[in-house]
């Protein structure tokens, strides 16, 4: 069982002489404050993940001008709109292929795909599989709240059996998709799952993803108190944190075939997988250089201007 810890490396409240003494949130520098308030409900876990993401970014010391966030559609899809980075809010399910074009046309960019479970695994499931297979250097953060929230709480591919949703009013009976198992099988080279209770671990996993190369996937189990928890009598956001704490078992060596989500059973969390193999661009360059020798012109970081 893991416990949460709040990172303390973050500067908390620094006040220069003569400045407004109001304490600013250190994460604020990563946010488009002119877009606040955000649309997320009280108790929603998405904001927690964004907080972790901002802190992870800060820790990596990456040049923020070169970090891009791409989202699809849905509640998590709105992340792109709130982070003060080059950010793209694309179409439903297609954040990964958009990110593919960005990365290949300018390999200097650190490309983060930040989206929800419905977006990434259902309508965008095919793209998820193929990006993992290619080991494309994308950092995919999937906030899994087990339902379609933006549209009012319908059953998703990730909804655990027996859960009540607006389109499974008598309880879902399709098995929920086991996302870490899927992406690992498809060829991802980093796979982790945490919950919004595990903020330190989530942040560390994000930090690792941001600094390594290859297809990296993080699933963050997150509450939707308004639509999922309420309909399933699971309490509010705080109750869900208690539940996560109670049922989470951290096991980096878990058998991924056995970690599918159930309605109230154990949630296996951990950094399950990290392996090295050439990413898409490395493989492409090696192959073309081998075949074409000096005739191959490698695409550099500088985008063509016209």
């Amino acid at each position: 069982m893991s416990t949460a810890e709040t990172p303390t490396e973050m500067p908390l409240c620094e006040q220069a002489p003569g400045e407004n003494p109001i304490c600013e949130n250190p994460v604020e520098q990563f946010l488009r404050t002119d877009r606040m308030p955000h649309i997320w409900c009280p108790g929603c876990g998405i904001g927690t993940t964004v907080n972790c993401f901002a802190r992870a970014l800060l820790k990596t010391g990456l040049d923020l001008r070169k970090v891009v966030v791409v989202s699809g559609i849905g509640c998590t899809g709105r992340v792109a709109g709130y982070v003060k980075l080059d950010s793209f809010h694309t179409t439903h399910g297609r954040a990964i292929p958009f990110a593919t074009g960005l990365k290949l046309a300018n390999p200097e960019l650190t490309v983060v795909v930040y989206s929800g479970d419905g977006d990434l695994t259902s309508i965008g499931g095919n793209h998820l599989i193929h990006a993992a297979r290619r080991n494309l250097d994308l950092k995919v953060i999937c906030v899994n709240n087990l339902t379609y929230s933006m549209t009012g709480g319908q059953a998703a591919a990730t909804t655990p059996e027996d859960s009540i949703t607006t389109t499974s009013p008598y309880g879902a009976f399709e098995p929920a998709m086991n996302i870490p198992h899927l992406v690992a099988a498809a060829g991802a080279t980093f796979v982790a799952r945490w919950t919004t209770f595990h903020v330190a671990q989530t942040m560390k996993a994000m930090q690792r993803m941001l600094t390594r190369r290859g297809f990296s996937f993080l699933e963050v189990i997150s509450p939707c108190p308004t639509l999922y928890q309420r309909r399933n009598q699971m309490g509010d956001g705080l109750d869900t944190m208690k539940h996560y704490k109670e049922v989470s078992v951290s096991n980096n060596n878990a058998n991924l075939a056995e970690i599918g989500m159930t309605k109230s059973g154990q949630i296996t969390v951990g950094n399950f997988l990290e392996i090295e193999r050439p990413d898409y661009l490395e493989a492409m360059r090696a192959q073309l250089r081998n075949r074409l020798q000096e005739r191959y012109i490698e695409v550099g970081g500088a985008p063509c201007q016209n």
Partner: peptide, 18 residues
């Protein structure tokens, strides 16, 4: 992997400068 992907990958590339 399909035409949906192809038709948006090109747009990612455009915003990256190509």
């Amino acid at each position: 992997e399909d035409e949906l992907a192809a038709s948006i990958a090109i747009q990612g590339a455009v915003w990256a400068g190509a």
